[in-house]
Nucleic acid binder design. Structure first.
Lengths: 138, 138
DNA sequence: CTACCTGCAAAAGGTTTGCATAGCC
DNA sequence: GGCTATGCAAACCTTTTGCAGGTAG
């Protein structure tokens, strides 16, 4: 792989942010210190780096793709209320993916699971009677 | 709801096709018999009908949204090889969604599960030694 | 009659690509 | 020096929207 300053910056930006930044986030962050970097270059490098396995592209339905510096196998949960993306540890889905394979023949990809739903803090913000709100177990 | 010929045709087209057609699929199908129908109208009606709960919009990462005439709760599996979308019965995911809620506090939406992976027929097409190919259990 | 719907075409949002120039090895 | 990356802008693809005219109730 050929070195370029921009590629290194893109990689470092994704790796150092746990927020699953979009291409546009990365672009905005880098623009601050690298005023000439172009959006095209950011996209090219994000795709290059995820093809090379150094980062991961997280496909988000109905929104911009996001990029993830964590390359160990894990899955994602998208809160359809606030738009945040959360990680889901692989072992929480392992049994499920085995069951799906056995029962349907469908073989889940590594990082192939996207859950749409409502995250803890969005659920807590809703004014439901406290008794019906299940507390998450961390 | 106000009647229109186009709306009825769109609804009927989605309901009668198990292929989870995209807006463009619906448009192409209807164009054959309704040469003046416009893509904008197809989109407007698909959105209207899914807002009204008569069909469902299936958000597909990295590809056009698809529409589903089956409105009972179920989930989807996208084959990242052939691009087909398959239904996944809700009861196969029920236990999993309970577990996720308890362990992470994330509350899955109805129809909120998208599995990316490889479908049975794509797996069978690959030239692996037969012994390593797990047969699906239907 | 009025509200809502249509067809058309333009706009919008996200992503990719062509081209000439610049930078790594 | 050659190959690849960059910046810029235009192109692309899917979806939405504004508008003027048409249709259901």
């Amino acid at each position: 792989m050929k070195y370029s300053r921009q590629r290194e910056l893109v990689l470092e930006t994704v790796r150092s942010r746990p927020i699953h930044p979009t291409a546009d986030d990365v672009f905005a962050i880098l623009r601050k210190t690298e005023p000439n970097i172009s959006l095209g270059t950011v996209y090219r490098n994000l795709n290059f780096l995820s093809d090379a396995g150094l980062i991961r592209k997280v496909l988000v339905p109905n929104a911009s793709d996001r990029f993830d510096g964590t390359v160990v196998e894990h899955h994602h949960m998208l809160c359809t209320q606030c738009g945040e993306v959360f990680d889901l540890a692989h072992d929480l889905a392992e049994e499920f993916s085995q069951e799906i394979l056995l029962k349907t023949g469908f073989e889940m990809n590594h990082c192939g699971l996207m859950l749409l739903g409502k995250c803890v803090s969005c659920r807590e913000k809703e004014c439901r009677p406290a008794s019906t709100v299940k507390q998450p177990i961390e």
